[in-house]
Amino acid sequence: MTKSLTKFAGRMLLVGCGNMAGAMLDRWLAAGLDPASVAIVDPFAAPRAGISHHASLAEWKEAGGSADWIMLGMKPQQLGEVADDLASSMAGGVHLLSILAGVSLADLAQRFPDARAQVRILPNLAARIGAGVSAVASLGDADEAAVTSLLKPLGTVVALADDSTMDLVTAFTGSGPAFVFRLIESYAAAGERLGLAADDALKLAIATFGGSTALLADSGEKPGTLIAQVASKGGTTQAGLDVLDSDGQLAALLTNVLRAARDRGRELADIARGEG
């Protein structure tokens, strides 16, 4: 990958560095971000060479910590625990980045009014290999070019006019990889139940899903067009599709999956605001 972040300016603080924030950080480092410009506040985060690591915000401040970019990467429920301590570090043109599910731009602006900009980012775990999707919306005077430069190494960037649909996007693309992994797992398990060896079933399932999505992305066609190229009237594919399409059950199931994830995001927002 290109070293697109070798000239990225500013010091960055990650408050929380779990799976998602850690995947983003590792990708940024691979893109040339200077580790000496990064600090992590997270007592459980894995150490990374050249990056200062702190167990708490108080410890970071005692070490003379300051930042131009602060990313919130902890659990949304923890926002109240860190907001007061962090708010005093927002003066002086700090960009606040947040990957917290359910926490709106309005919530961030209320908690951190002195930030130069509040930027809400919804990435997904495929950012780890540069194949993720990051939806982004902002308030304030955001340096959009700098924000985009941070997100491009993670994969596709989708800029939204506002964050009104972010709870759905969280479910759709943020939670989406887990749903896809479950589908692949279940597909492999079905093959195993019908007689395939477990390892063969999983290998075939991964290759089938991966190749199909790659073909769809490369072709520029609608899914239905490619379905028609595989299925023939009265054939084996159509027999399986008839089961998938029966009574709209698949569409209803996926709608319910997304609705449950979206609604949980809203509940988390209430908890973060102290209303849950």
Rank of each mutant, 00 (worst) to 15 (best):
A252V: 00
G234F: 11
G234N: 07
R262I: 07
A260K: 14
G234Q: 06
R259L: 12
A228D: 15
D263P: 03
A260G: 15
R264W: 03
L250A: 03
S246V: 08
V230F: 01
K233Y: 05
L253R: 05
G234M: 09
R262M: 15
K233V: 09
L226P: 00
L226G: 01
G265S: 10
Q229V: 05
R264L: 09
T225V: 11
G234C: 06
T236W: 01
Q238H: 00
V243N: 02
G234W: 08
D242A: 13
A228Y: 08
I227F: 14
A252R: 06
A251N: 10
A261E: 04
S232K: 02
S232G: 00
R259D: 10
A260D: 15
K233N: 06
G224A: 12
D245W: 15
I227A: 15
L258R: 04
Q238P: 00
P223L: 03
D242W: 04
R262N: 09
A260P: 13
D247R: 08
G234K: 09
S246Q: 13
S246K: 14
L254N: 04
T236C: 03
G235Y: 09
D245P: 09
L250P: 00
T225N: 10
D242V: 04
A228H: 12
K222T: 05
S232H: 00
A261W: 06
K222D: 08
A251F: 07
V243E: 06
L244R: 11
Q238M: 09
A231E: 10
S246N: 07
V230T: 06
L241F: 05
K222E: 11
G235I: 10
D242Y: 01
L241C: 05
L258K: 02
A252H: 07
V257D: 01
V257R: 02
R259N: 09
I227G: 12
D242N: 10
A260N: 15
Q238R: 02
L254Q: 04
V243G: 04
G265K: 07
L226W: 02
A261Y: 05
A261V: 08
A228N: 14
T225E: 14
K233H: 11
R264G: 04
A260I: 14
S232T: 15
L253W: 07
N256P: 06
L226C: 02
A251P: 10
D247W: 02
K233Q: 12
L226A: 04
R259K: 14
K222Q: 11
L226K: 02
L258Y: 03
L241V: 06
S246Y: 14
S232Y: 00
Q249L: 03
R262Q: 14
A260Y: 12
G234T: 05
Q238D: 00
Q249K: 07
D242L: 06
L253G: 04
T225G: 07
D247V: 00
G248C: 03
G265W: 13
A228R: 13
G235L: 12
D245N: 15
A260T: 15
G240K: 12
G235M: 11
Q238A: 03
D263I: 05
L258E: 00
D242G: 03
A231S: 14
G224E: 13
L244V: 06
V243T: 13
L241K: 03
L253H: 09
K233A: 14
S246C: 14
A260V: 15
Q229E: 12
D245M: 15
G248N: 04
A252N: 07
R262F: 06
V257W: 01
